[in-house]
Nucleic acid binder design. Structure first.
Length: 288
DNA sequence: CTACAGGCTGGTG
DNA sequence: CACCAGCCTGTA
């Protein structure tokens, strides 16, 4: 186990921010969060701004520190918000603990293909179903509390996110029943594209490109349009200048920024502000 | 019953 | 070019 103090981070807010569909509360304790990412698994509990992780310090530094984007100081972005921008200030006040995770690129491509014309509940269900059907079952370490109130490590089973080959081999028939709907053919198509040595090269190449080039490489793919490409750039490639405009953000821009959102002022990191706005719009009614 | 959910494709004017 | 019907499917 490893205990660490982290500023500007709240797991519930991140889980509700729509960027990640594999962070959820565990079944046995609503204090414990389970986090599956890129073949790894960890559990965590929050105690104020202190976090207890089920992994050791070494694994935390090697895997999870980067995953949670801990090298980035989010207070710097918050401070740069225009003082007269009431909407963004409110959004940050509610979603102060939202960060942009560094998630696996392949996982983000598939996840955001699923996300189109869809809702968070169904996306989560599809991702879970896909992992348990096509992923690899592994045993990780979780957290449980003993009778004397002390946290202990405990074995936990989880499923990895299926790689391109697993999905390509499954075929369209192997994807049915996952609630993907018409998106199944998009996912199968990109799985074929990313399989094997040439697929690995394409993915590797994508990671090397800047935002503009990566975006165009993505929109060339069947089923990936402008919005999904922006989400993949932001969440899978950490191009934080990407600014995905979905139906929610579109409404925010219409209602609160009739003169246009000041993208120029926030050039290079507008995606982070988009995340605060999205979180606020989707969660303000439920949480207030 | 309809409307809608973090859109995209393919066809039409 | 811009526009938009249709699409899988569960939930309100």
């Amino acid at each position: 186990m490893y205990r660490i103090s982290i500023k500007d981070m709240d797991l519930e807010q991140i889980a509700r921010s729509g960027q990640c569909f594999r962070i959820k509360r565990t079944e046995d304790s609503n204090e414990v969060w389970s986090i599956a990412a890129d073949g790894n698994y960890v559990e965590a509990v929050m105690e104020e701004d202190c976090f207890l992780f089920s992994c050791g310090e070494k694994e935390f530094q090697e895997i999870w520190s980067g995953y949670f984007d801990l090298q980035t100081d989010y207070s710097r972005y918050k401070k740069n918000v225009e003082p007269e921008d009431a909407y963004l200030k409110e959004a940050i006040k509610l979603g102060w603990g939202v960060r942009i995770l560094n998630q696996d690129l392949w996982e983000m491509i598939v996840t955001f293909l699923i996300s189109q014309n869809n809702n968070i509940t169904r996306i989560t269900g599809s991702v879970e179903a896909m992992c348990s059907r096509l992923g690899v079952k592994r045993t990780g370490v979780g957290l449980s509390v003993s009778a004397d109130g002390v946290w202990r490590e405990e074995e936990r089973n989880y499923y990895t996110f299926p790689g391109p080959e697993a999905i390509a081999c499954a075929g369209l028939s192997g994807l049915s029943g996952l609630g993907l709907g018409y998106r199944d053919k998009y996912i199968w198509s990109i799985a074929e594209k990313c399989s094997g040595e040439t697929g690995k090269i394409w993915i590797g190449d994508l990671k090397e490109q800047d935002y503009e080039k990566a975006h165009s490489m993505l929109t060339e793919q069947y089923g990936i349009g402008k919005k999904v490409a922006d989400c993949i750039c932001l969440f899978g490639l950490h191009h934080i200048g990407a600014f995905p405009v979905d139906t929610h953000v579109k409404q925010i821009l219409e209602h609160h920024y009739p003169q246009g959102f000041p993208l120029k002022k926030y050039q290079g990191y507008a995606g982070i502000l988009q995340q605060y706005m999205f979180y606020y719009k989707v969660n303000k009614l439920a949480l207030k």
